[in-house]
Computed example of a mutant assay.
Amino acid sequence: MSKRPIFLVTGADLAPQALALLTDFDMVYAGKTPSEDDVVRLCQQHDPVGIIVRYSKVGKQAMDAAPSLRVISKHGSGTDTIDKQAAEERGIRVVAAVGANAAAVAEQALALMLACAKSVVQLDQRMRAGHWDKATHKNVELEGRTVGVVGLGAIGLRFAKVADAMGMRVLGFDPYAKELPAFVQRADWSAILSESDVISLHCPLTNENAHLLNASTLAECKSGVLIVNTARGGLIDEQALLDAVKSGQVGAAGLDSFAIEPMVHPHRFHAEPRIVLSPHIGGITADAYVKMGVASAHNALQVLKA
């Protein structure tokens, strides 16, 4: 009796709805926080035909360890943790569940923007300490303010639509976007920096845009600008951001992604109350978990059936 082909999931689980699509395969799970070495070891041990990437990196060592590997499917939209050049050289397709978590991530970006503008975390902490700051504290009103949306894929456009509904002026920067909806005004990078009251990042991380926000670009922003990042931590120079928050050049920042994940403890951001943190969970909701799982399984199967 022949052995069934194997899918490796670089995580501890996969939605039942996704597993229902993969009943012809045996499933191997790498655990909650697999390292790149763990992935390589499991590839050597099981020689999967497909990898569904939730956590960790998948590089050329893992690909070389799995001669049967034909597809690497991202459980989400960002494929920066996959060595795409190595995959192309080996004839392995890389696919992504683009848009599956768009609603979830856009909502997280909105939550972080509002938390920054309305001092949600700081005021909660102040009240728990016995303070009543009504006479002295003033929040930021977002209606009429300008938000610069960097990256106009499914997530960025969804966030932009909500910002527009709130009465914000929406500038959009994306060199690859062709047609834009009427509520997004196309802008160049310099306009994003100089005109935005809020900058929200929704672009993939590449070699070209690493540290897109750094000491120099942050200095070009409006004083008191709010920074939101639900994309990739590498888009921001973290020390430069912290310095800008401390100086007041950046009024507050809401971050869901970081240069090193999981975040090390202690971290330079922990002592700064004007930086709101969440552990890269923007795309992790019960609904998005199912959508991403089903999309990643479907995308992988389409490659294997071709």
Rank of each mutant, 00 (worst) to 15 (best):
N101D: 10
G153V: 13
V120G: 00
G148H: 08
V245D: 02
V198D: 08
W189Y: 14
R128D: 07
V228P: 07
L277V: 15
L235N: 06
E107W: 05
A109S: 15
N207S: 12
P273I: 10
R232N: 07
K118M: 07
G130F: 10
A286M: 12
S119Q: 13
I236D: 05
V264T: 15
L22Y: 00
Q122D: 11
R4I: 01
R4G: 00
V225Q: 04
I281S: 14
S119A: 11
I275V: 15
A87D: 04
S247L: 04
G59M: 02
P181N: 08
Q122T: 14
N229T: 15
I92K: 00
M168Q: 13
V149T: 13
F269G: 00
A109T: 08
M127C: 14
D38R: 08
D133R: 05
V49K: 05
V150Q: 10
Q125Y: 14
T81P: 05
A288C: 01
S190Q: 14
V290P: 00
L69C: 02
L110S: 10
L171P: 10
P262A: 06
E36M: 04
H270P: 03
L8H: 03
D188M: 08
M63K: 01
A215Y: 07
M166F: 15
Q122M: 14
I51L: 00
D24L: 07
A129V: 10
A306W: 10
M263C: 06
L241I: 05
T33K: 08
G76I: 00
L255P: 08
V162G: 11
A100F: 06
T10I: 01
S196C: 06
G144V: 11
I92R: 01
W189K: 13
G167D: 11
A300G: 14
A253W: 07
Q108V: 06
R158K: 15
H46S: 06
A240P: 13
M127Y: 14
F269Q: 00
L218E: 02
V39R: 00
K60P: 07
